[in-house]
């Protein structure tokens, strides 16, 4: 009998050990690292100091970076929901053949490296890039708009990278929706718009929010796209961590930055999903 009781632990044990050794332990080591002192002359020292956190909290330079990062994440999330949710709704109404093609186009980029996708945006967004050339040639603008190395450029590219997650999440919850509920609303006298806002939207809202949450978490910690499109001057938290670690070798400060980022993202994620769960507990389980 004890053999049966121990079986699940035996099965889950190896994976769990790997997760403990490669996730939990490194995070603890990073936590301890963030409390170590650092000077450019002597490198990482011994002891315990809050200096790294104090620096992040008080230095306007870091505050600006955090502010920029979360503003970017918020905007990217908002835009992704705004265009991703309707697209999922349209996908559900396409003919099977058109839908299969749309799937490859909309979801396929998830399988392509972020570096490749961001490269595409650098070609599109540059001053000599495709977007500016097209706008110039049709006379919409008289001189190139700066998009590379701007906040707008980062936001556009990040929406491209992350919007499939919203489409996917909303698509999944649309699949669970009983199409007869739309017919029922119609038979009770509701027009298409009322049916959409009163019947369809509330039922897929949990999907919209969970998709948005994924986008927010990934956008606030995205590295490659802000690094390439934003460049050296327009820093976000993750590119700052990269610089601290690999350029300035100030690991303790980098670790502190990473942990602050982690805590903020986790608090927001858990907070929102708790809210969603409580809000929809009775209707959806």
């Amino acid at each position: 009998m004890t053999k049966r009781l121990l079986l699940p632990y035996g099965l889950v044990g190896p994976g769990l050990l790997a997760a403990l050794a490669l996730v939990a332990l490194p995070l603890l080591l990073t936590l301890s690292l963030s409390f170590l002192p650092f000077t450019y002359a002597d490198g990482i020292g011994d002891g315990f100091t809050m200096a790294n956190y104090v620096e992040i909290a008080t230095d306007g330079y870091y505050q600006e970076i955090f502010l920029r990062t979360f503003l970017l994440a918020l905007i990217v999330t908002g835009v992704s929901i705004l265009i991703g949710a309707p697209e999922a709704y349209i996908l559900a109404r396409l003919s099977p053949f058109m839908r299969a093609i749309a799937f490859v186009v909309v979801l396929g980029p998830l399988l392509i490296s972020v570096v490749v996708r961001t490269l595409g945006w650098t070609i599109l967004l540059g001053n000599e890039g495709v977007i500016n050339r097209v706008l110039l040639s049709i006379g919409l603008i008289s001189e190139p708009i700066r998009l590379m190395y701007t906040f707008t450029g980062m936001a556009i590219a990040l929406v491209h990278v992350l919007v499939p997650f919203v489409v996917l999440a909303v698509w999944t919850s649309l699949q669970k929706l009983d199409p007869a509920t739309e017919q029922a609303a119609e038979s009770l006298g509701a027009g298409p718009l009322t049916t959409l806002t009163r019947i369809v939207l509330p039922q897929v809202l949990p999907g919209v929010l969970s998709g948005g949450l994924i986008v927010f978490a990934l956008a606030s910690s995205a590295f490659a796209t802000p690094a390439i499109i934003g460049g050296r001057r327009l820093k976000v938290v993750s590119t700052t961590i990269y610089d601290e670690f690999l350029n300035y070798l100030n690991w303790p400060l980098g670790a502190a930055l990473a942990l602050v980022l982690l805590v903020i993202v986790l608090v927001i994620s858990v907070g929102v999903s708790r809210f969603v769960e409580r809000r929809y507990k009775q209707a959806f389980q």
């Binding site: 609303a185 119609e186 038979s187």
Partner: peptide
């Protein structure tokens, strides 16, 4: 269908879950 004023009971009932 919204203008016919017929009452329909669906096979799945199609109650609005929310």
């Amino acid at each position: 269908p919204s203008k016919r004023g017929l009452g329909i009971v669906f096979q799945s009932y199609a109650l609005f879950p929310h």
